[in-house]
Design a protein around this nucleic acid. Structure first.
Lengths: 142, 142
DNA sequence: TCTAAAAACAGTAATTATTACTGATACTGT
DNA sequence: ACAGTATCAGTAATAATTACTGTTTTTAGA
């Protein structure tokens, strides 16, 4: 049942995401797919993004305020979101073993996964505001 | 400028969120507010939730798939989302000092905040599936 | 290789969540 | 008490996503 059939569109969407490091939205994927399949439908893009996510071949990054974003890189890694320009940058996954077991210890349910997401000012935006007052150093869990 | 005026509606919304541990959506807040102000507008709820978030008096939890949720508890804490029943449970914030400085060390921008979010099966759902196969123990960063 | 069942498609309509607008109402400083 | 303005209720508009419909592709089996 639910026998998955091959589709050129799905293949292209996956391939496109694998070459991107910019975590595009469904709409951006759509715009890019139109260059290959001029009359591809936005519904097709959404359906395939959803399918690929379910298959674990891509990753869905739930809304940072706006539309959901998709990531073709499925190896463990974290994301940094610049609160100035909105850019999302990959960050190496830190070693979180000790803190994970600490959390699991105090928690009655079973933890099977987690996300860590960082906020702040990216390198480029830092340079832009070098001459301005700049003394934010509160680290807070949001 | 932008002198913030008192509003009964805003006060009630904040008070309601403070008594809740269920991280309600804007719509749920609206439904509850209607019991106090029968003809309150959904727009009013959204505007005040947004205002309170900007003031740092409540916290916005960006979409777990569906609508955004709001949290009256602003002390640092994390969230656990049950992948079975969708419930969101508060979790004590683990000590993340070492892992934060590790990440900052390798990163050119400036980190000013982060979120950690855990996924898994909550205590209640664990009990329900006690007799089923249950050997998920992959911890992955998503 | 041809054929038929079903998955996937393009195109479009509908839904959901959220924001913006408008004229009326309620706070607040004087 | 009054004037200025933030906030309000009500509603329209937008944005993101999902659902529907009739057509086209894919694929397993004759």
């Amino acid at each position: 049942m639910a026998a998955l059939k091959y589709s050129r569109q799905r293949e292209s969407i996956k391939e496109f995401l694998m070459t991107q490091t910019s975590h595009p939205t469904a709409d951006t994927v759509y715009e890019n797919m139109k260059q290959i399949y001029p009359n591809i439908s936005l519904g097709t893009v959404y359906r395939n993004l959803s399918l690929l996510t379910d298959l674990g071949e891509i990753r869905k990054l739930s809304s940072f305020g706006g539309a959901d974003r998709y990531d073709g890189r499925i190896q463990p890694h974290c994301h940094f979101i610049c609160t100035d320009c909105g850019k999302i940058v990959d960050i190496e996954a830190p070693d979180t073993g000790s803190f994970l077991s600490e959390v699991q210890e105090d928690f009655a349910g079973k933890i099977t996964g987690y996300t860590a997401r960082f906020f702040g000012i990216c390198e480029e935006c830092m340079k832009k505001k070098e001459n301005q007052e700049n003394s934010i150093d509160i680290l807070q869990i949001v």
